[in-house]
Nucleic acid binder design. Sequence first.
DNA 1: GCCAGGTTTGAACGCTTGGTCAAGAGAATG
DNA 2: CATTCTCTTGACCAAGCGTTCAAACCTGGC
Lengths: 207, 207
Amino acid sequence: MTPKDTDRRSEILDAAAELFAHKGVASTTVREIGESVGIYAGAIYHYFPSKDAIVRELITGYLETLNAEYAAKAPRRLAPRARLRAVVEVSLRTADEKPHATQVYQDQLRNVRDLPEYRRAKALADEVQRIWLETIEDGKAAGVFRADISSKVFHRFLRDAIWLSIKWRHSGDPYTTEELVQDCIAIFLDGFAVRRARRTRPPAPPR
Amino acid sequence: MTPKDTDRRSEILDAAAELFAHKGVASTTVREIGESVGIYAGAIYHYFPSKDAIVRELITGYLETLNAEYAAKAPRRLAPRARLRAVVEVSLRTADEKPHATQVYQDQLRNVRDLPEYRRAKALADEVQRIWLETIEDGKAAGVFRADISSKVFHRFLRDAIWLSIKWRHSGDPYTTEELVQDCIAIFLDGFAVRRARRTRPPAPPR
DNA sequence: GCCAGGTTTGAACGCTTGGTCAAGAGAATG
DNA sequence: CATTCTCTTGACCAAGCGTTCAAACCTGGC
């Protein structure tokens, strides 16, 4: 039976991602990964040098595609609001297509970001953040985003809301990614309050 | 040396919370907890029947104070916008005062919510969610929140943004909790876009 | 000085873990 | 049929885990 040959590797990667996402990296054993692919644990070490190498490849791969997508779909030439929308859309779509890797990334990066083996992952994560902040700052400079709220705070709120959406979206959901993007932009840019008159602080006091 | 006597128990609880929050429950050993209190691992079992009992007590205690605070500071008689603000403020303040327990709660509850030992924790978590949703629904009914965005989605975005703020706030931050509450409400209710004219969808199409 | 009882020790137990490895299975090639 | 090579097996570590427990330690009251 050799319908898939070099596929074993990615089969292991997928199975590991699912298990890691579902019950955490630390409490997933190499034996479980093997079991869910239908091989013994020892065979896994034919494809990967260690359990941690699997985790690392998952995280790095995820961040690479994310960055590539940002570059392709959210170039700087877009107007800030459109670019932010594109960034949000790419983030949500990637989370939707690779939910397991996304989750592993969130759960793990904080614990390992200072380890030398993860230097590349950290660099990629920094680049992701750079793009977000650049988009927000450009929008402020253009006068379309509020200058009275810290870019970092806004970035973190928005990023966390997006990243965590994978935890509550389940596959059989009729709520599409497109709708989610729509609602996300609606809430974060225009607010959840019904618009009657000006309600709170005046926009962008000069300072 | 007996300045604190029955305090041993809470000393263990605090030390465990800090370790759990910092490196995860699974990869924190009972020996480490003991070490950080200055006793041997065995002695911990004089106060707690198991490691899991410590986790459970942390989570349950956190959810209890959170619910009590909601009841005290965000009663239903408040107007929806004020009540939502109060809920946000209580959540952020509790996260600020008990950052470790908050983090353990976030990291763990998803993994254990169906275990019978955690029935009480699950009930408390459900009550927390009930209060959030009630506040949002009341606001929609009163016409001050947008009816064109799902309450669940808004709740989840806001909740996740708040819960995760503890991950990026560090103790020496000059950014106060009061400011954070302010910015949080500003973003989520009024939006990050500068208000010029109506920008996107009309408010609350009847349906 | 002595006792009683809560508290701590320190070693041990049973078990699981990530990782290793010599041996072999299986197919493809010649 | 023999050779070669990739992939898999299954037993095997050493290390580390949560937990247990008899024995020792303290400390306050008599």
